[in-house]
Design a protein around this nucleic acid. Sequence first.
DNA 1: CGAACCCTTGATGGCGATCAAACGCCGTGG
DNA 2: CCACGGCGTTTGATCGCCATCAAGGGTTCG
Lengths: 231, 231
Amino acid sequence: MRPGERPEIANLPLFREMQERQRERIFTGSFLQAFPPQLTLFELGQYPDFLHVLVDGLVELHAHSAGRDTTMRIVEPVTSFILAAVVTDQPYLMSARTIAPSRILLVPAALVREVVKDDPALMQATMRELAKAYRDMVRALTDMKLRQSAERLGNLILQQEQRQGGTGKVRLKAEKRVLASLLGMTPENLSRAFGVLGNHGIAVNGAQLTITDRAALEAFVRPDPVPGDPP
Amino acid sequence: MRPGERPEIANLPLFREMQERQRERIFTGSFLQAFPPQLTLFELGQYPDFLHVLVDGLVELHAHSAGRDTTMRIVEPVTSFILAAVVTDQPYLMSARTIAPSRILLVPAALVREVVKDDPALMQATMRELAKAYRDMVRALTDMKLRQSAERLGNLILQQEQRQGGTGKVRLKAEKRVLASLLGMTPENLSRAFGVLGNHGIAVNGAQLTITDRAALEAFVRPDPVPGDPP
DNA sequence: CGAACCCTTGATGGCGATCAAACGCCGTGG
DNA sequence: CCACGGCGTTTGATCGCCATCAAGGGTTCG
């Protein structure tokens, strides 16, 4: 582990409040591993072996069935993922693959379940994390059901802009094809959606976006009625 | 509370494992209230006052924004709902209304949060419940993104048939218009989707459905690659 | 008995998917 | 260093699923 990384992981909402002794158990039982891009980490249907914490890189969670495939979430560092499958010991509902060279902390699933039982602070943090994940999914589903594609794209841009500091500039971290799948559309239509947003306050230059007219953009995208949870 | 109901509530996965003393705190601080149909219980954006436990009747959770509205979940008794908003003390992401005369146990949200802190078994049950809710939402989102409307309907029928005892008969509990919204389509298209399923092993008679050819139905609907969690 | 309201059926239109092809970027290999 | 080839993206043309608009039957409730 590189200097500064262990504190960064220990400072995650999930691990921040727990007893130092239990945290030590977690860390000594885990290991950090590097993966090349385009590598499948696990497949939907498998039972969870590890809680994953993305330390560096980029990971795509996707679901697939009967030849169709859709991106469910793009995980940025530093974040844990697939906590729900681990705590309930039920099969993954999504597959995961790296989309950039990535380093991931692997915490044995059984160890997580054990320590959760022994450490109330960790259990509470897990509860909060799951509640947040649930609420994120509720938002994603309403987004899909209530908005059409260009509106979804506009909202995603607004969210990313907030996450990236609110400077009016947004850099897309994933390929546009992946982004399209995340938004539930085809690459062709994503391209056209960017075209539409050109008339509503967005300028596109490759992966670099600029919000040129925030008011116009917000008027177009039907922003969430309930403002986002703080990160 | 009617005879037999208190044990039934106490036996919910959420409350089953907790200490009797803490459970007593929950029950004495709560009250059971009856509501007529078509009554709004709470609105999206409000802060949660109560954890709700539907004891009898039927409740619809729905989201809305900019004049559009979509059903997110139909709650059947006996089930708790909006647990995530309560434990995190964040605004509801969905509104709730009764769609039948209903009786609901109202547990003050602050009391829930307090008792959760004091009772590890309740906290663990809450964690599990949230994990399940999260996984249900993942399924709902993949359903919406990967399947088209008649396939979604067919899958819902198969799930309901399991929940109702696997007898090959399914009775729809909600109006078809609500069902349509839950499935992300219009009433007109739901009607047509039933027509399509007529060629794939389903017979419709009002709200009473019969699975006449399970193999044909399963071939048509692209069943989930990961079998459902046990209830 | 009548009047909503729900469900159904038909006709039309729009959003987004699919098919097809050209462009641009980038890495490789000559 | 440049030519080539592959892949992601863009643009255009067409198709299909589903929404919308419209109207008719059936049921329920006042």
